[in-house]
């Protein structure tokens, strides 16, 4: 896959359009969304029992996706999170790089901001390059994407089990209307397990 050109300090892609394109033909894709805007973006693309939405535990989206990918090696797993959320647990990239699950992809919607707290600049606004860090952490593919063509191409890669794949999609720092999925954690957990295991209960 060709590395797309960076678009500079501000991306030109709308985050909702990017997520919608990633999930358009999702098939058996399992999705974990990081807290804040990525959770609203995934919900806006259409609620699904195969989505596990986070509303907190910042920094945990990538590792939840890792555990899920290891337990469900036949299903493609996609984590969609933000730059601030990922950077709170950046060591997870190295932990994923050790395990190298081929069915795992991590997409960062990088608006270079902390969008839920007043649009303060994040580290990526200062030139920190997440794709370079992911590549150095053992991801098989690590990209920065700035165009819709790049997103569409990435959507196809998600199903090919060529991971771990990392992509930072540079998106506009605007605010979209909030689309809120269910927030009850027990409900989300049991609904997800019922959908993929046909059982919620452990016994």
């Amino acid at each position: 896959m060709v590395k797309a050109a960076r678009t500079g300090a501000d991306g030109t892609l709308g985050r909702r359009n990017a997520v919608r394109a990633l999930l358009k033909d999702r098939g058996d894709l399992l999705v974990v969304s990081g807290l804040g805007s990525p959770t609203w973006d995934v919900a806006a693309a259409g609620d699904s029992a195969s989505n596990f939405y986070m509303w907190g535990a910042m920094g945990s989206a990538a590792t939840i996706g890792l555990g899920l990918a290891l337990a469900q090696p036949r299903r493609p797993v996609l984590v969609i999170t933000g730059d601030g959320e990922l950077m709170m647990g950046m060591g997870a990239l190295a932990t994923i790089g050790v395990q190298k699950p081929s069915n795992f992809a991590l997409v960062v919607l990088d608006n270079e901001r902390y969008g839920e707290t007043g649009m303060q600049m994040s580290h990526t606004a200062h030139g920190i390059d997440l794709a370079v860090i992911a590549r150095g952490s053992g991801f098989r593919t690590a990209l920065t994407i700035g165009t819709m063509a790049g997103v569409t191409s990435l959507a196809r890669v998600l199903h090919r089990k060529v991971g771990p794949v990392f992509a930072a999609i540079k998106v506009l720092a605007g605010e979209d209307a909030r689309v809120l999925p269910p927030r009850d954690g027990v409900f989300l957990k049991n609904r997800f397990r019922e959908a993929i295991l046909r059982k919620a209960d452990s016994r």
Binding site: G59, S60, I64, L66, G67, A94, T95, I196
Partner: peptide
């Protein structure tokens, strides 16, 4: 069994939660 070395302990919380979502224990 699969060994999953972590860079910091809280990663293990996410990994084990994700494994449980996928039907396995850790």
């Amino acid at each position: 069994m699969r060994l999953i070395p972590l860079t910091t302990e809280e990663e293990g919380i996410g990994v084990l939660a994700g494994a449980w979502l996928g039907g396995e224990r850790g």
